[in-house]
Simulated scan of single mutants.
Amino acid sequence: MPKAQKYKIYLLLVFVMAAWGFNVIATKILVTTFPTLTITSIRVFTAAISVFLILSIFKMVRLPNKKELRYILAAGFFNVVCHHFFLSMGLAKTTASNGGLILGLGPLLSTIVAFLFLKSRVTIPKIVGIILGFSGVAFIVASGNGGLSLRGISNGDLFVFLSIFTQSYSFVLIKKISNTLDPRLMTGYMLLFGSIVLFFISLFAEPGGLKKIPHGSLEVWMIFLASAVIATAIGHMIYNSAIGKVGVTESAIFINLNPFFALVGAVLFLGEKISSPQILGFLFILFGVLFGSGALEEFLHQSRLKKMPAHRGNVKNL
């Protein structure tokens, strides 16, 4: 692949990470303005419609077969219903900065899930990464009162952790069916299915929630559209496309920027103050993801492979 094209993909990935990081702030605003589950179901449904509109332009929409439908329903339950349910409930009870940092565990949890369910190999660097990552979360969730204390741990932090864990498990299901069903099309079906389930849950959990939806300001509705269309719909499509072009490992490295943008957004838009334990926790998670996800090992391995042919050529010329 030409370097210019690769750099273009990298820039798009940075854009996606910024969108996802700021989306934590957007979700925080939405769930504190509207009934949590009601607005979440509408936001996810809007994202689903956006995905199908985009895919229809490129004539990529088709009906799934029975096997694909089973995976869509299962992955949609974990990736959309559980993930967005726990994330929305969590952000309603914790700070956006905490939520963004804990979401940075995504690649690390994916490694653990892959080991448990796909029997992938676990190396010493990955074990070190897992320890570093969870140590970082411990610093973050135990700093709720400005100092390290178990009293700082909130239900919101736990819910955010569950949201990223359920999403990580769904990646196993997506991987198993990705050979026959395009991940971008699967994303659309999962969002559609998940939004319908979340809507019915909201009817029971938040009676009369729909009546409060029209009361939002124009500014809040602009945030809603940006969250649904840019972050959720377009963001996931760009990321899935990047995986197919530069690989899972190189794409996953950019996820480390997600909590950084969430922290920046929390300071700029919500006026939250970042504590020393949060900064320390961010650094632990950053290095934990680099080691635990296998990204660092793969990068070093690929670097050695690229150097080997040139080295051998030099040996022959001697």
Rank of each mutant, 00 (worst) to 15 (best):
residue 115 F to T: 02
residue 119 K to D: 14
residue 183 P to M: 10
residue 272 E to Y: 03
residue 155 N to K: 02
residue 157 D to K: 08
residue 9 I to Y: 08
residue 270 L to F: 03
residue 222 M to K: 10
residue 112 I to D: 01
residue 68 E to W: 05
residue 101 L to Y: 10
residue 125 P to H: 07
residue 129 G to T: 10
residue 303 S to M: 10
residue 221 W to G: 05
residue 318 L to E: 09
residue 148 L to P: 09
residue 176 K to Q: 13
residue 178 S to W: 05
residue 116 L to K: 01
residue 252 A to T: 15
residue 192 L to C: 04
residue 259 P to D: 06
residue 198 L to P: 00
residue 161 F to T: 08
residue 82 C to R: 06
residue 156 G to A: 06
residue 57 I to K: 15
residue 213 I to N: 03
residue 114 A to Q: 01
residue 187 T to L: 15
residue 227 S to F: 07
residue 20 W to A: 03
residue 40 T to M: 14
residue 87 L to H: 11
residue 80 V to W: 02
residue 45 F to Y: 11
residue 219 E to P: 00
residue 131 I to S: 04
residue 18 A to D: 04
residue 179 N to Y: 08
residue 161 F to H: 07
residue 263 L to D: 00
residue 92 A to I: 07
residue 10 Y to H: 15
residue 26 A to C: 06
residue 124 I to D: 00
residue 219 E to V: 11
residue 222 M to I: 12
residue 117 F to P: 06
residue 133 G to K: 03
residue 282 F to H: 09
residue 157 D to N: 14
residue 44 V to F: 14
residue 285 I to Q: 05
residue 226 A to K: 01
residue 46 T to S: 13
residue 281 G to Y: 11
residue 36 T to W: 01
residue 163 S to H: 14
residue 184 R to L: 04
residue 85 F to M: 08
residue 50 S to G: 05
residue 224 F to A: 04
residue 146 G to A: 04
residue 236 H to P: 02
residue 12 L to D: 05
residue 157 D to T: 04
residue 248 V to D: 09
residue 185 L to R: 11
residue 218 L to D: 14
residue 260 F to H: 00
residue 34 F to W: 07
residue 306 K to M: 11
residue 234 I to K: 05
residue 58 F to G: 06
residue 101 L to N: 09
residue 162 L to R: 01
residue 129 G to R: 09
residue 57 I to A: 12
residue 70 R to V: 05
residue 256 N to Q: 05
residue 60 M to V: 00
residue 137 V to L: 08
residue 260 F to D: 00
residue 66 K to W: 12
residue 216 G to L: 10
residue 203 L to N: 09
residue 80 V to I: 15
residue 299 F to R: 13
residue 160 V to F: 02
residue 227 S to C: 10
residue 183 P to I: 10
residue 263 L to V: 15
residue 156 G to P: 09
residue 74 A to H: 10
residue 201 I to K: 12
residue 160 V to S: 04
residue 205 A to Y: 11
residue 187 T to R: 01
residue 33 T to Q: 06
residue 296 L to A: 13
residue 21 G to R: 05
residue 274 I to A: 03
residue 293 S to T: 11
residue 234 I to V: 15
residue 310 A to R: 15
residue 307 K to C: 00
residue 221 W to V: 04
residue 239 Y to V: 03
residue 90 G to M: 08
residue 168 S to Y: 10
residue 12 L to W: 11
residue 1 M to P: 00
residue 270 L to A: 09
residue 84 H to R: 01
residue 118 L to V: 01
residue 225 L to F: 15
residue 204 F to P: 00
residue 170 S to Y: 02
residue 119 K to F: 11
residue 190 M to W: 07
residue 38 T to H: 08
residue 36 T to K: 12
residue 309 P to L: 05
residue 120 S to N: 14
residue 182 D to W: 00
residue 69 L to S: 15
residue 28 K to E: 06
residue 211 K to V: 13
residue 58 F to C: 03
residue 21 G to D: 01
residue 239 Y to H: 12
residue 44 V to M: 13
residue 114 A to V: 03
residue 126 K to F: 03
residue 310 A to N: 09
residue 141 V to D: 00
residue 109 L to G: 01
residue 107 P to F: 07
residue 299 F to S: 15
residue 311 H to T: 13
residue 245 K to M: 13
